[in-house]
């Protein structure tokens, strides 16, 4: 018990060092270009490679090129939610203020990416499988993930008192994480129309290296891009909350002061 106590306390201290808004803004400004520019370069390189220089698949023809945008968005839909679940844990256990703001900002980005994943999958399924949509385990579990994102977006903004919204949304965020292993293993546990993974941790990829390279580039590029967008939104969000605090303090000084100065009333 003593060990857990010191563990939670120590990890808590570690996280709270980054809860200082000033420190976060300084570090965020430094980190931003390291995410933004590699993301742009890698994504563009991967897309050009995938569209024009990678070979067509022997049975799918050129439609296999949809993979270079579909697979990264699918990976980000799940990992984005993983990030949301981690923020939820930090929020529920350590009451970390930055984790709450991050959860607010990850939600809409993750939901958009999941929508793109579903749409590009549909655009791939129509010419290849012969249908836009089937209710198999993989497709349905990703649709559930999309609704979890939407629920989280709505819930975290649903309360007049933000703290209550953060708590409620964090519980939803953690509970929804149950869907992540279901998405991952759906193609192994049940027979589905969606094919099993080509790239696995244990086995060799069942994909030509000439297709693996552009896929790796877009996956890395999109992931950095996701990080860059979330970081930019989070920085903006921290600045906005600082603006609100300053304005509230100014108003407080005004009402405390019986005769406000005309220039401070203008602010």
């Amino acid at each position: 018990m003593n060990a857990t106590q010191s563990l939670t306390a120590r990890t808590g201290n570690l996280f709270h060092r980054y809860a200082n808004p000033g420190r976060f803004l300084r570090m965020g400004a430094k980190l931003q270009p390291w995410l933004t520019w590699p993301a742009l370069v890698l994504s563009i390189a991967g897309i050009v490679w995938g569209l024009f220089f990678s070979p067509a698949d022997w049975q799918q023809g050129d439609s296999v090129r949809i993979m270079y945008v579909h697979v990264p968005t699918a990976w980000l839909a799940s990992s984005g939610y993983m990030g949301l679940a981690v923020c939820s844990l930090l929020s529920l256990v350590w009451r970390h203020p930055l984790a709450d703001l991050a959860a607010v900002e990850i939600g809409p980005v993750g939901a958009s990416i999941t929508a793109v994943c579903l749409a590009t999958g549909s655009l791939w399924g129509k010419p290849m499988w012969g249908t836009w949509w089937v209710w198999d385990a993989r497709l349905t579990s990703v649709l559930v993930l999309f609704f979890l994102y939407l629920g989280h977006i709505a819930l975290i903004r649903a309360f007049d008192e933000p703290q209550r919204g953060y708590r409620a949304a964090a519980i939803l965020g953690l509970a929804g994480a149950v869907d992540l292993p279901i998405i991952k293993f759906s193609v192994q546990w049940w027979n589905t129309l969606h094919q099993p993974d080509s790239i696995t941790v244990t086995g060799a990829p069942t994909m030509s290296t000439s297709m693996l390279w552009p896929l790796g580039l877009t996956t890395l590029g999109f992931t950095l891009g996701f990080g860059a967008i979330v970081l930019a939104r989070l920085r903006a969000s921290v600045m906005e909350s600082r603006i609100r605090t300053i304005l509230a303090a100014n108003r407080g000084r005004q009402s405390a002061n019986p005769a406000p100065k005309p220039d401070s009333a203008a602010v």
């Binding site: 070979p55 022997w58 499988w129 012969g130 249908t131 094919q195 080509s198 069942t206 030509s208 000439s210």
Partner: peptide, 18 residues
Amino acid sequence: SEVLAKHDETYMPKEVAE
């Protein structure tokens, strides 16, 4: 009433398959 094609997880260039 409907036939859907299910492709496997193997991706390879046309030239290699031939």
